[in-house]
């Protein structure tokens, strides 16, 4: 299933098709004629055939339409706000989070906390990071405010667990380094708009 239809956020321009339906009967005679013609047509068998055909397609031709949840999962809109993910830089594999603390500050459920420190490379390092998913209301502010697109909402919508804390540490949310090639760029709330380039004022650079 493609995601194109979700990416188009301009409501009203989708491909709606107007159906060509006959007019309803105008008087008693017309209604009587409609009943008569429908009764004499073999549509009952057409319906039976359709059901039989779909059963054959599903059972013998591998065209089953039922999703076998939880073995199968439907893809979800990028605007859906599920369990957070921490992204990495594609080039270096280093995590994107710079420890600016904006997500911690903006969080209205007050569920994000981080510890930072001065590391050996003279950089600010996030030494601990946690989200209390027992309190998180999945409002998406953290993803929206993140200047590095480091914290985003992923597609993991199943938040039932014995301990929701088990989702919550930095390493749990971080893209595994061996799955870096599978990391998807975030398209949801807070992502760069498609026309971002047009909105930027160029500054002179002498070098």
């Amino acid at each position: 299933m493609g995601l194109e239809q979700f990416k188009n956020r301009n409501v009203g321009t989708q491909n709606y098709v107007k159906l060509d339906l006959p007019h309803p009967p105008k008087n008693g005679w017309c209604a009587f004629k409609q009943v008569l013609s429908r009764s004499l047509k073999p549509e009952l068998f057409v319906g039976l055939w359709v059901a039989l055909r779909e059963m054959i397609n599903a059972l013998f031709r591998g065209q089953m339409h039922t999703t076998q949840y939880p073995l199968e999962k439907l893809p979800i809109s990028p605007r859906y706000r599920a369990i957070h993910e921490m992204l990495r830089l594609l080039e270096s594999g280093h995590y994107r989070c710079i420890g600016c603390g904006l997500c911690e500050k903006i969080c209205i459920a007050n569920c994000i906390t981080m510890d930072t420190r001065y590391d050996e490379n003279q950089r600010k390092e996030v030494s601990e990071y946690t989200i209390n998913f027992g309190r998180c209301i999945f409002c998406g502010y953290c993803a929206e405010v993140c200047p590095e697109l480091a914290i985003v909402h992923g597609g993991r919508y199943e938040t039932a667990s014995e301990q929701r804390a088990s989702f919550s540490l930095f390493e749990d949310m971080l893209t595994p380094i061996d799955k870096l090639n599978l990391q998807q760029e975030y398209q949801g709330f807070g992502a760069i708009s498609p026309n971002a380039d047009e909105n930027i004022k160029k500054t002179p650079l002498a070098y």
Binding site: C100, G101, E104, K105, T116, R117, Y118, K124, E125
Partner: peptide, 12 residues
């Protein structure tokens, strides 16, 4: 100060 550097944000 070397001790304070990168440990916290002022607003916290």
């Amino acid at each position: 100060s070397r001790d304070f550097q990168y440990t916290t944000n002022a607003w916290d």
